[in-house]
Design a protein around this nucleic acid. Structure first.
Length: 600
RNA sequence: GGCGAGGUAGCUCAAUCGGUAGAGCGGGGGAAUCAUAAUCCCUAGGUUGUGGGUUCGAGUCCCACCCUCGCCA
């Protein structure tokens, strides 16, 4: 069955580097799932981008005496570098600071406004004579709950309570220490109570199919407190201007605007592809399936607020955008992951209690990281990154089971059959049984991948690799060669090579780099996968860089691929490096150390 | 404090509808020598967070409590 698939991946805030927890939560699961969908031949698109706006980027810029734009551009570059090194195969990785995203967001805002889901309300906020209205976290003062003198407007770091910023005692601006005053301001609110019953009816159709964490939590929020109107504009200069006369000096709240990126990135992709209507396949076609890969902290935004925005805009968006009239597709699934801890503690960037992804990849290869992160992927509960466990995962599982299987088969064949895939005699029942079992993996691993049970899929593939190791022990081709039964040994090695060639594909969504390397060693000349290309583009907001997966040359299919006898192999080299146990203490010693994370 | 998700073998995790608690790794013993000392076979081990309840039967359903995490206040 074929249907369009959209892999919508959380947009990282461009104000900090990404760590392994971010990868395990959203980026790696999305990539594994998407590579599988491509191999199935489905019309799949994976999109995301850097979240360029919002207060965290302003904070970072102020802390460093830089500008929000410079901060965003620095981290955006680091993200592009990471996706290329780790092989996160976005069809388009863009950002929210694009002319297209501005237009799409403003059109969606306008559609929601036209449909009567917005209203204006007045509120009081701290106003600094030097800056203007201050975001809550830009105000410091004495906590009215515990008396701590350096509480932020949004939350007190001492007692942990979330605060009402207007109640802070002795407020001062975090930017320049100036004393702010309370002033009245006006903002647009989205009228979520109007959408409550429609959202609830829609979420109920997801019960039993979505992860309990996602659907029960979202329904619980709706039923216990009900949705309240939520502000969607702010008094800032960095962001997307409100598209209404007299409001241009205010910008959209970043929670409202960033999720629109899923839509705007799809539209941008269609424009780059030279087919500006191609995005209809994912957003309008009723059979399309849209998957949102996020961490659990993001559930309300994707299961409640983003669907509410899509419902509120409705066909009015298309009417304003290009004259079409259709309802948007709502999320088909939101396979949110829990959190990855680190050595028993929560990951904390500010305390440098983190394994930074780019730093990791400066010392280790991408596929061992992908393997370990899949093994500990927090699909049902919080899990833990442990360096000793990473070492064992690499040395005792990846190297020992899969890497060793490949190496023993390839090197033995290469030595005894002049570097060619041997010509087999008639396959015995045992040979045939092995191949049947491995070929069944396409259905079994595939079913796990369809259900976004990524760990289970990888475990099944590893089980099959062990089956091939067991087959080799039983058939002992090394003994057959010594007994002058080389023809029989040729059949065994042919069978084992076919099995490995299948496993190469079963592992490919998880371990794309080493599957590609194995593919070449087996003598294939057309690549399994395409490549990730960074491109320079320019619009009214200036030059910028995007990442695109170019899959025109890719040949990987989710089905057994023949490996012809007589095909010339490459001289085999190990797929994986065995790691020195000393890395455990080395890496642990890095944790918690102050690190230079400045952007300049 | 409210809502939600979790708590299962030394470690990381499974367990459809309630039906003999499983796998990998690690530990112990053995075989083999093609392979990065990797592999293969055998084996040890758990009062399923605690205490009650429903049931012929509970990891699973109900109640209370403890702990972890997320969202909200």
């Amino acid at each position: 069955m074929s249907f369009p698939v959209l892999s919508a991946v959380a947009w990282p805030y461009a104000n900090a580097l990404l760590h392994v927890g971010n990868l395990a939560g959203a980026y790696l699961p999305a990539d594994i799932f998407t590579r599988y969908q491509r191999m199935k031949g489905r019309r799949v698109l994976m999109v995301s981008g850097s979240d360029a706006h919002g207060t965290p980027i302003l904070v970072r810029a102020l802390d460093e005496g830089s500008t929000p734009e410079a901060v965003y551009r620095y981290y955006h570059e680091r993200f592009l570098e990471l996706w290329q090194k780790l092989g996160i195969s976005f069809d388009l990785y863009t950002s929210t600071h694009t002319e297209n995203h501005f237009r799409v967001s403003q059109t969606l805002f306008r559609a929601i406004y036209d449909n009567g889901y917005l209203f204006v309300a007045k509120e009081k906020q701290w106003y600094s004579p030097t800056f203007g209205f201050l975001p809550d976290r830009f105000v410091e003062g004495t906590c009215y709950i515990c008396g701590y003198e350096n509480a932020r407007g949004d939350q007190c770091d001492k007692c942990g309570n979330l605060l009402d910023a207007t109640k802070l005692i002795n407020p001062r601006s975090r930017i320049d220490g100036s004393i702010p005053e309370l002033r009245e301001t006006e903002h647009f609110y989205i009228d979520l109570p109007k959408l409550q019953s429609r959202l609830e009816a829609w979420l109920e159709t997801r019960v039993g199919r979505w992860r309990p964490l996602v659907v029960n939590f979202s329904l619980g929020l709706l039923r216990s407190e009900g949705l309240k109107p939520r502000p969607i504009t702010r008094d800032l200069k960095w962001g997307i201007p409100v598209p209404l006369e007299g409001w241009e000096h205010k910008v959209m709240y970043v929670w409202f605007e960033a999720v629109i990126g899923y839509l705007s990135a799809t539209i941008e992709w269609a424009q780059l592809a030279g087919d500006p209507k191609a995005w209809y396949d994912w957003w309008y076609a009723p059979e399309a399936r849209t998957y949102y890969f996020i961490g659990k902290d993001n559930i309300p935004f994707h299961a409640l607020l983003w669907p509410a925005q899509l419902m509120a805009a409705g066909p009015r968006f298309g009417a304003l955008w290009d004259g079409t009239q259709a309802e948007f597709n709502l999320p088909y699934d939101i396979p949110a992951n829990a959190f990855l801890n680190l050595e028993g503690q929560k990951i904390s960037g500010s305390r440098n209690w983190a394994v930074w992804a780019l730093d990791f990849l400066s010392r280790y290869d991408p596929d061992p990281l992908r393997y370990y992160l899949t093994q500990v992927m927090p699909e049902h509960q919080d899990t833990d990154w442990d360096w000793a466990h990473f070492l064992r995962s690499n040395n005792e599982e990846l190297v020992a089971t899969w890497g060793n299987l490949v190496h023993r088969v390839l090197s033995f064949t290469y030595r005894h059959w002049e570097g060619r895939i041997p010509e087999p005699g008639p396959l015995t029942a045992e040979d045939q049984a092995l191949l049947t079992q491995i070929e069944a993996g396409f259905a079994q691993v595939g079913e796990h991948l369809e259900q976004v049970r990524l760990r289970a899929g990888l475990q099944e593939a590893m089980r099959l690799a062990r089956e091939v190791n067991r087959y080799l022990e039983r058939r002992a081709p090394w003994a057959l060669v010594k007994q002058e039964k080389k023809d029989e040994a040729a059949t065994v090695m042919y069978t084992a090579l076919q099995a490995i060639n299948h496993l190469k594909l079963l592992f490919a969504p998880y371990l794309p780099h080493t599957s590609e390397a194995l593919h070449r060693m087996l003598g294939f000349t057309q690549p399994l996968f395409g490549s990730l290309v960074v491109e320079d583009v320019e619009d009214a907001l200036g030059p910028r860089r995007i990442l695109r997966y170019r899959g025109e040359e890719a040949t990987a299919r989710w089905e057994p691929q023949p490996l012809p006898a007589g095909q010339t192999m490459e001289k085999p080299t190990p797929l994986f490096r065995k790691l020195d146990p000393g890395i455990v203490e080395e890496e642990r010693a890095r944790l918690g150390r102050p690190a230079d994370t400045s952007t300049t």
